[in-house]
Design a protein around this nucleic acid. Structure first.
Lengths: 124, 124
DNA sequence: TTGACGCGTAGGAAATTTCCTACGTATCGT
DNA sequence: ACGATACGTAGGAAATTTCCTACGCGTCAA
């Protein structure tokens, strides 16, 4: 059964980044535009396989192509990664909340717990 | 062929986040600790399947378990997401660089490089 | 033009992932 | 103690992903 047709752009970005080879390709493109062949040589992978991965990256807008004669250069267009940053935000907020709550707890317990020297853990 | 045993913690985090259900589970845990059963009901999925996903999340440290009698509560521990933020950084830097380079280009006409074979310029 | 080269995609085999039911273990209420 | 409940995991079927070779199209250099 197909998963669902209810995928958001963020879902697609996560899907594109899910594969290590695709992340490696993005990292390689940080150095500048490359052809599929040069990328394939670099990763000891057949060119068509690299092309397939690049197609996935292009579908989510992480990569752009520029035709130059019979060569085709792929370049990095990292804008969609902002979706990833946006996805991250609630969790960082959660994390900050947890930390500050923990700090408050430590503060209180430091006042209440002057006599105790043991390393009591409070997560169990 | 198994891909490789050379996976970094960042690779594992990306792998854990690759599946929409697992991202949904994390989102649900933002509201507080939950049992596998309540999460399963919420997503119309069998409990063992949810348990499997939670196992993956736990393996990368995104989720913690707390036993309470015969119930087991899963809670969010988003620290590993900092790896994701770190991964993001070079791309944001790249993006900022591109923007400022474009601004510079608009400001002044640049000199020609020594690329003699072909014209190689940004046509944007 | 012709032949060599770079390219994307089709088609399919192999590996992986996902999700279920069935089971065994531990805990709660009576 | 006893049954009901919550849990994790095993085992396997189905879907998906990944990667290759083979092919056809367009481009460069003569």
């Amino acid at each position: 059964m197909p998963r669902q047709s209810k995928e958001t752009p963020t879902d697609h970005v996560f899907g594109a980044l899910a594969h290590p080879v695709r992340r490696d390709l993005l990292a390689a493109l940080l150095e500048g535009p490359q052809t599929a062949q040069s990328l394939a040589d670099r990763y000891e992978m057949a060119r068509p396989s690299v092309a397939e991965h690049l197609k996935v990256l292009r579908a989510v807008g992480l990569v752009a192509e520029r035709q130059a004669g019979r060569n085709r250069y792929y370049s990095l267009t990292p804008e969609p990664l902002s979706l990833l940053r946006a996805w991250l935000e609630p969790y960082e907020q959660f994390w900050r909340g947890r930390v500050s709550r923990l700090a408050a707890l430590l503060d209180e317990s430091a006042e209440d717990d002057k006599s105790s020297r043991e390393k009591d853990s409070f997560h169990d």
